[in-house]
Amino acid sequence: MAILEVLRYPDARLKQVSSAVVEFDERLHRFAADLEATMRASPGCVGLAAPQVNYFQRIALVDVSAKPKLPHNGRMLLINPVILEQHGAVVGREGCLSVPDFTGNVLRAERIVVRSHDLDGAPHEYRCQGYEARAVLHELDHLDGLLFLDRVESPRQDLFRRKNYK
């Protein structure tokens, strides 16, 4: 396992759209282990997407289980993830390893259903809510070349669009 270098905005590579994983091979297993080692090396980090470490395939890792009192699915390695459903919307504060020292408010769905594949290509469906749903959506954005900076709202607008704004 290796700790990979994290690309930082304004590196243009972060805007690249990643392509689907086709080969579920040994190389994919090795990369997933490196991605996880890189995420675990940053205290407090709850997700990391492949393009953040200069690897442009649709792979993201999310694990919010260290946060107290949150519903979660444990460690989720999401390969070729697709959002099947999203419900509600809630504003929350986000930051990103690729955008150091800046945090902002982002509106995200409150509950989602995501389908993805595991390292052996088997499909899985996850139901996520709240903080975990936010983490998944944040990471999936990276696969499409989007950063939370593309979605950040003025803190002054918070009052007018809090929970369940539809």
């Binding site: 709850v46 997700g47 997407a49 390893l97 945090t103």
Partner: peptide, 15 residues
Amino acid sequence: TGVDLRLTPLDTLIG
């Protein structure tokens, strides 16, 4: 005293 107060914990997501 008639003031409405709401406390919301903030936990910034780092991803």
